[in-house]
Write a protein that binds this DNA or RNA. Structure first.
Lengths: 343, 343
DNA sequence: CGCTATCTTGTAAACGTTTTCAAAACAAGA
DNA sequence: TCTTGTTTTGAAAACGTTTACAAGATAGCG
């Protein structure tokens, strides 16, 4: 193990000088700098990251805490955060808790122990526990940013999409296509989380659009529920189609939900999109790959991750910076699964 | 910041004793242990992970280097590794290089700097560079395990699936269904990587099955190529269908490829699966969600990740342990996209 | 040339833990 | 009680780096 001392000896300078060169300080005479660099190369020296993290009491690591179950959305988000962080010189400790409280606790402790510089959290809902955890982190001087959910209480930075507007847009799209009896399969709605979670916002937008844009729209809601998986979509979709004659379009508040509905429709022998228009929400990879391809309200997932990362980095470099709320827009991607209602 | 010293003072013992208690050593008198624990609780002491990693020169972190582009397969694998590692007390530094050499280099350096205890690599192909990197890691005493590809040279542990057998099984399935003119869209074949990469193995299995099981099988190969994406599948699939009348089944060596083919078929107005059977390979989430649902040769992705993690852990705890090669079996999942040939 | 201001360098302390070594305390056997 | 062996404890060094401080060197100016 070649240390800074070895380099110092070879270059015939003090270890302080080597340290300065390694860290790119000014005030080192050019010829000395060269000599040190030559010694570094000659010995193949690399600074001991553990020692330097220890001395400065900070790793250049940020934690990314993903509470929700592993989904295409989550992993796309994680990827966006990771690459952005990487480009800025930070490394990512990925923490998929999958809703397991013990695991979450253990991860939080790891992060504290490792002296991560910041944490990005995608919560499943803003619970009291979340607030407590965030406060714990901030007490220790760790910056925090939320993504995909705006914290209701603490003054924390966040990056979210305008889910109300997204719901509104989706509904407008269906109404403009002439649909009047529309099913809504609403998932991802936090049960007790209060009204500002992603799913509820989308539903609010949907309701508002129906009120604003036509007075003869009938919405058939499925009970909103917590999970938003393919299987749920298939079951609920099947029930909705069979029990409600006359529905011409179904809006799933999640792509996977919508894809489930699509399967149910296929299974029931419907000819898509002629017999039923289906609209999704999220814009994950899968939506481009269904048959027919799924129209969807796309979230700028990559951008969300990117901005969340950059926001956190700003906070970490200047701790004083005040929280910043970013709201991004969702946009309709019209593909093959939604068509005008034939009359 | 409350340190071990504060605890020692409060409990009226030496820091050495506190350290022993914290690390669960034997040879501490029970009453002393209790006193120390009480002091720890009273002060809210937590061991400084940075200091302790520094002192022991090891973090309990393992790196997971994913070379290939971000795919459903990759992320499922990463997840499996992460959760397994977590349960064993290790944390994961996720490194998605996406084929970018600079990024890969930087990640490798980070891992070296952080003194990761081990690294799991899913290579894109066993190049000379890979070998060099592995040797570099092992020189530094870092354990290495490969997943989804058997290294050709170094004596390194690996976990792979029997891709030959998988290709064979897939072909047998199609032949047993009565298909005789079968298209094969072969992706994920390393261009220069030699003959033992995943894609080539599958192709070998396919060829062997055709030879073994029927003497009137005609295989139409698309040129094997590096990428295995949806878009490639669609393009190649379209060409294959239009240029080769009489093909009744297409085997994509990757689910995404097969799904691309499926889209091409839909676009050309084919009625699936009646006009064309399609078989995929991987068993990723997406395959369960297409229409018709995709029959596929499923890989035990979770198990691969799990075993890779456990193998690495074994190596890390007992450096002497000799390399271990694990080969898992792929299994056919028959869904709706493959049906008997009607005559 | 002498003075001050600036640049450059080295010395040494510090970070919080683990661990070696040896001493102290205790137990057991005679 | 004395030996011997074991258990329990503390003192102190060590890990490799960063950094405060001070001192030496250099430059700029009159």
């Amino acid at each position: 193990m070649v240390t800074i001392k070895d380099v110092a000896k070879l270059a015939d300078v003090s270890i302080a000088t080597v340290s300065r060169v390694v860290n790119g300080y000014a005030h080192v005479r050019p010829d000395v700098r060269d000599a040190v660099n030559k010694a570094i190369d000659a010995l193949g020296y690399r600074r001991n990251g553990l020692a330097s993290s220890f001395r400065t009491q900070q790793s250049n690591i940020v934690g990314v805490l993903l509470r929700q179950q592993r989904t295409p959305f989550s992993s796309a988000l994680a990827y966006a955060i990771e690459t952005t962080m990487f480009d800025q010189g930070y490394r990512v400790l990925l923490c998929s808790t999958n809703g397991d409280a013990d695991r979450e606790q253990a991860y939080l402790e790891t992060m504290l122990d490792m002296r991560v510089q910041g944490v990005i959290i995608r919560p499943s809902g803003t619970t009291a526990k979340t607030v407590k955890q965030v406060n714990l982190l901030r007490e220790r001087g760790i910056s925090v940013a939320f993504v995909d959910m705006k914290p209701k209480i603490a003054a924390v930075s966040s990056v979210v999409c305008d889910n109300f507007s997204g719901g509104y847009q989706g509904m407008r799209h269906l109404i403009e296509l002439g649909h009047r009896k529309i099913g809504v399969v609403a998932g991802g709605v936090a049960q007790r989380g209060g009204s500002h979670d992603v799913g509820s916002e989308r539903v609010r937008g949907i309701r508002q659009a129906a009120r604003d844009l036509a007075d003869d729209v009938e919405i058939v809601f499925s009970h909103p529920f917590d999970t938003a998986s393919f299987d749920v979509g298939r079951e609920v979709g099947a029930a909705m189609i069979t029990e409600n004659a006359g529905i011409t379009a179904i809006f799933g508040t999640t792509d996977m939900l919508a894809i489930g509905v699509m399967h149910a429709a296929h299974a029931l022998g419907l000819d898509l999109p002629r017999d039923l228009s289906i609209l999704g929400y999220d814009g994950v990879l899968e939506s481009a790959v269904t048959f027919p391809t799924l129209s969807t309200i796309a979230q700028p997932i990559h951008e969300m991750g990117q901005i969340a990362a950059m926001t956190l980095i700003d906070h970490m470099s200047e701790a004083s910076k005040s929280p910043r709320q970013t709201v991004l827009e969702n946009t309709l991607i019209q593909r093959a699964s939604t068509i005008p209602l034939e009359d």
